[in-house]
């Protein structure tokens, strides 16, 4: 990065200070707009419910409160189960996705693999054609039994051709073919070559694809909406969707006989849950930025 910064300073001599100030204002405005909604939601989550009732959401609330968070933790079993589900599927899903992706990408990376073109086609054809949502839903639910279990939440995400492209490109740029040849002359088997030689030299690529998988599974809510009807297998993202639906349902039916208003999730409570979901992403953000930019640049240009 340092090398790239120095020369750009040189060519900047021709932009006037005034112009650069305008540039700063434009970019800063957009950058702030990107982060302000999150800050706003954090503020709302710390606003007292009475202040919300009186004045609505505000950047400068009249009264602060941590009640939303204590209530979130009072959700008890529902919350811990959702958190547990999210963490479990993210960890297990990422590990399995990495095993599948690494093995497949390594085979596609080997130029001397006889069936390389066939397997490349089998994988990448799925990027341009598929059965569509309904047939996939029937296959996963009715044939493969992905219904109300953890499998449904990460099995459909195990292999992403895009990640195979990224992984293969990383292999191509970081593993010299001579290294593989010499390993095979030394009698190293393919699995040993992969584990002891290829993986250690392509760790940045592995970090990139792992983080992409992790992010995708952590942010996944659609699979839960498709395949999960019970309460035990709801991940955090889908808990948030369900709470919103409950609130809408309650709002529509409030005042009607039989409406249960007591258990209606409050506004600040849902915002607090929102913050809890974003926090792990925010903490992992420095890693994400570092590795994912590298991966996305590779993937987007070659993809």
């Amino acid at each position: 990065m340092e090398e790239k910064q120095k020369p750009s300073k040189n060519r900047l001599t021709s932009v006037s200070l005034g112009t650069e100030v305008i540039f700063h204002i434009i970019i800063a405005a957009f950058s702030l707009a990107c982060i302000i909604p999150f800050i706003f939601v954090v503020i709302i989550s710390f606003t007292s419910e009475d202040a919300i009732k009186a004045n609505g959401y505000s950047f400068f609330p009249e009264a602060w409160s941590v009640k939303a968070y204590t209530t979130v933790f009072d959700l008890g079993k529902t919350l811990w189960m959702a958190l547990g589900t999210s963490v479990f599927i993210t960890v297990l899903g990422t590990i399995l996705a990495m095993v599948v992706t690494l093995l497949y990408s390594y085979a596609l990376f080997r130029r001397d693999f006889k069936y390389r073109n066939v397997f490349t086609f089998i994988c990448f054809f799925t990027m341009i054609f598929g059965g569509g949502l309904a047939p996939t839903y029937i296959v996963c639910k009715n044939i493969l039994g992905m219904h109300n279990n953890y499998w449904a939440l990460f099995i459909p995400m195990l292999l992403n051709p895009f990640n195979v492209i990224i992984m293969r490109t990383f292999f191509q740029s970081s593993v010299p073919e001579a290294l593989i040849e010499s390993a095979s002359i030394d009698g190293s088997g393919e699995y040993r070559t992969l584990v002891q030689i290829v993986i250690p030299v392509s760790l940045p690529g592995i970090a990139t694809v792992s983080l992409l998988n992790m992010l995708a599974i952590w942010n996944e809510w659609f699979l839960a909406q498709l395949y999960i009807d019970d309460v035990e297998h709801v991940p955090l993202q889908y808990l948030l969707v369900k709470m919103q639906k409950t609130a809408e349902y309650m709002a529509r039916n409030s005042g009607k006989p039989g409406a249960v208003t007591a258990s209606m999730p409050t506004e600040s409570l849902r915002m607090a849950l929102c913050v809890i979901i974003v926090i792990p992403i925010a903490f992992a953000y420095p890693f994400f930025q570092r590795y994912i930019i590298a991966g996305l640049t590779v993937g987007a240009v070659k993809g």
């Binding site: 095993v99 599948v100 992706t101 093995l103 497949y104 390594y106 085979a107 596609l108 397997f119 089998i122 994988c123 799925t126 054609f129 598929g130 059965g131 569509g132 309904a134 047939p135 996939t136 029937i138 296959v139 996963c140 044939i143 493969l144 099995i155 459909p156 195990l158 292999l159 195979v164 393919e190 699995y191 992969l194």
Partner: peptide
């Protein structure tokens, strides 16, 4: 090595095409 990915592709991507 391609086997896990291949099985996944057949079940999750190619089988639905017949649907």
């Amino acid at each position: 090595m391609t086997l896990p990915g291949l099985i996944w592709l057949i079940l999750i991507r190619y089988l639905p095409m017949f649907g």
